[in-house]
């Protein structure tokens, strides 16, 4: 009987090996609000998506998770497109601080923005 238990434990462990382990990032409603925006692009769906991005930034620490890659950058980029320069730049800086590997990308976004202003 004990041997059988062992067999099942091994089989069970084998199954566990197929499961993803706990996720490092908190994504909130990101994919569904982005999906809705792509399905019906417009001011309303974009503003819902923006709210989702802000909520991720706010709620991730409460959930003891990290803000995912790209979320600060995407939010900052939308703000820049709306002409909210200082806030937008602030979020780009947050992306770079949280993910130093994004430095080349963030630099490009900043350059393109100043190039577009001229």
């Amino acid at each position: 009987m004990n041997k059988m238990l062992l067999f099942f434990s091994i089989a069970f462990l084998g199954l566990l090996g197929c499961q993803p382990s706990s996720a490092p990032f908190y994504w909130g409603d990101y994919s569904s609000t982005l999906y809705n925006y792509k399905k019906n692009p417009g001011d309303t769906t974009l503003s819902v998506h923006k709210t989702a991005l802000l909520e991720i930034i706010k709620e991730a620490p409460e959930k003891k998770k990290l803000v995912p890659p790209g979320v600060y950058a995407e939010y900052g980029y939308i703000l820049l497109k709306e002409g909210r320069e200082s806030e937008g730049m602030e979020y780009l800086a947050k992306e770079e601080k949280a993910f130093p590997e994004s430095v080349v990308f963030i630099k490009r976004l900043k350059n393109e923005y100043s190039r577009g202003k001229k």
């Binding site: 990032f25 790209g70 950058a73």
Partner: peptide, 22 residues
């Protein structure tokens, strides 16, 4: 539509993924 489903699981696997829209 498919492109909206990929960033999330790829980051959860441990990667820095550039925001696709941007």
């Amino acid at each position: 539509y498919y492109s909206t489903t990929i960033a999330e699981p790829l980051t959860q696997s441990g990667y820095y993924v550039y925001p696709m829209e941007v």
